[in-house]
């Protein structure tokens, strides 16, 4: 189904989108050719097939947060290299390259701001930064955001996009799952409202921790959401997965997601949930 939204926000140009000569974008799903301006205005959603392509963290923040109200937090935390990991390219170099490519410090941006007037604590993952992988920085910043939400009694929104744990940080990346989940437990016990937003793709250690712990879980249409990646499952069971397996709609059908939305409705849906639970 084709739809266009009026350009409500000026959206910063994504650094990494597969754009041809800066004029046209090819939809990764149906391969339609889309004029770049339409692609941006349409929030990276294909007007022909409805495919929701990735947004970078700041595009996402601009889409969700009322203009001029966002304050970034914990922007001074960057990756260390606790394992001295080198697979041919030193890990530190990979991080530096990702920083240059994305203009981010790591795979998550945290902060607070207003969403349709509601002050919320926000964490937005960015898949462009090393596949949105969760290492110590992602775990720490998300935990700090949860603790901030607890302290200021703000609703918490985490926008997930991740290939899973960052293996370059070994066991410490695994421990971020426990750390973030423990912080969410405390937040929950204090009566905090946590809305998890799952975007394409959300897999691995992020799915097996904060992505699945929302009081309300909202997924973007057709997003791939799973614990194991589709390739791993296919290798394990030695057969092809049926179409739509691990899609947002599949998770809704199986009872693991509350609401599936089109991107243009995400902000208003989050606002409605906050209003119902916390009042205007």
């Amino acid at each position: 189904m084709a739809w266009f939204v009026k350009p409500q926000y000026t959206i910063k140009k994504s650094a990494t989108i597969k754009q041809n000569e800066g004029l046209w974008t090819k939809c990764p799903e149906c391969h339609s050719i889309i004029y770049n301006q339409d692609w941006e205005n349409n929030l990276h959603v294909c007007p022909h097939c409805g495919f929701h392509d990735k947004l970078n963290a700041f595009e996402r923040i601009q889409m969700l947060i009322d203009p001029g109200t966002f304050v970034e937090t914990f922007n001074n935390i960057v990756s260390a290299d606790p394992l001295n990991f080198n697979d041919g390219t030193p890990y530190i170099e990979k991080v530096k390259n990702a920083m240059l490519k994305t203009n981010l410090k790591d795979a998550v941006v945290t902060g607070y701001g207003k969403l349709e007037g509601h002050m919320i604590e926000l964490a937005v993952m960015d898949f462009n930064f090393l596949g949105g992988s969760m290492g110590s920085v992602v775990g720490e910043k998300i935990t700090l955001a949860i603790e901030n939400a607890t302290k200021h009694k703000r609703p918490l929104v985490i926008v997930c996009a991740s290939g899973g744990a960052r293996m370059h940080e070994g066991i410490l990346s695994l421990m971020q799952m426990a750390k973030t989940s423990a912080a969410l437990k405390r937040f929950s016990d204090e009566g905090g409202l946590y809305i998890a937003v799952l975007t394409n793709p959300t897999t691995g250690g992020v799915t097996a921790s904060f992505a699945m712990l929302g009081d309300v879980i909202i997924a973007e249409k057709k997003a791939l959401i799973g614990f194991a990646g589709p390739r791993v499952i296919e290798q394990t069971i030695k057969q092809k997965l049926p179409p739509g397996f691990q899609s947002a709609e599949f998770l809704l059908e199986h009872g693991f997601v509350d609401i599936v939305v089109e991107r243009k409705d995400l902000k208003s849906t989050i606002a409605r949930v906050i209003s119902y639970i916390k009042g205007k």
Partner: peptide, 25 residues
């Protein structure tokens, strides 16, 4: 955790996340 189809259908990620959440307290 077993990476199969039924596990995904029954929420392998949710089950693990829930344990981390509950065990922490």
């Amino acid at each position: 955790a077993y990476p199969g189809m039924e596990g995904e259908e029954r929420g392998q990620g949710e089950a693990i996340a829930r344990n981390l959440f509950e065990m922490s307290a």
